[in-house]
Amino acid sequence: MLEIKNLHVKLEEEDKAILKGLDLTVEAGKVHAIMGPNGSGKSTLSYVLSGKDGYEVTDGSAELLGEDLLELEPEERAAAGLFLAFQYPVEIPGVGNMTFLRTAVNAQRKARGEEELSAADFLKIIRAKAKSLKIDADMLKRPVNTGFSGGEKKRNEILQMAMLEPKMCILDETDSGLDVDAMKLVAEGVNALRDEGRGFLVITHYQRLLDHIKPDVVHILADGKIVKTGGPELALEVENNGYADILAEVA
């Protein structure tokens, strides 16, 4: 599904390398988790994959279903099936959440040569999905993320993911700022989307989320590289002992 090879990324504006030879493959139907110390490059990886400006790929490759991601515009990556749930979802005053979602869904359908959803069909689908994430009608009407609480923003990210039905989902610390109940809702939202044709990359600092979204593979990212890969037990090890042991072991 997602295949990243020897990815080197530096900041465009300054001579600062952030990703330093990252290798990672996520297979369809699998959930991979990435953990790693603050500043190790997790969000940078998610941004580079989704096409944010300001980064320069100096070496390596990233493919989604065999297609070179790095060549595509952000919107083309989305239409190709990539989705990023942002660590910090963006507030957009003046653009209604519903308008935004309908524009996004239809833009992707158009890009893939599919028929656009009618307003009525869209409404039916979004109402059902919003309900299961406990997102009320008022939140759908309000401007995108504007004035949303931290937890509401994260649930809104999952709603977008549910509506767009991407093939490859990257979740950047979607659990941070969530209370216990919201965490469950979000995990249920993710689990509902799990299927054979879909891959997940879940970036998190805590085992807690992984109790609900059971990963198949856990990676440790440190200083711009995957330094260790293992099963779910690796996350437990981080939870109990922090990163010191692992980093010492690979040094």
């Binding site: 096409g51 515009e73 239409a79 963006v90 003046g94 524009t103 833009a107």
Partner: peptide, 26 residues
């Protein structure tokens, strides 16, 4: 930042710019 957010949801650059422009006038 807002522009990238919209694009990352599949909304093409030109359309996203227009959406933000109308939002500005709202």
């Amino acid at each position: 930042t807002a522009l990238f957010y919209l694009q990352s949801r599949g909304i093409p650059h030109a359309e996203a710019t227009d959406l933000l422009t109308l939002a500005f006038l709202a």
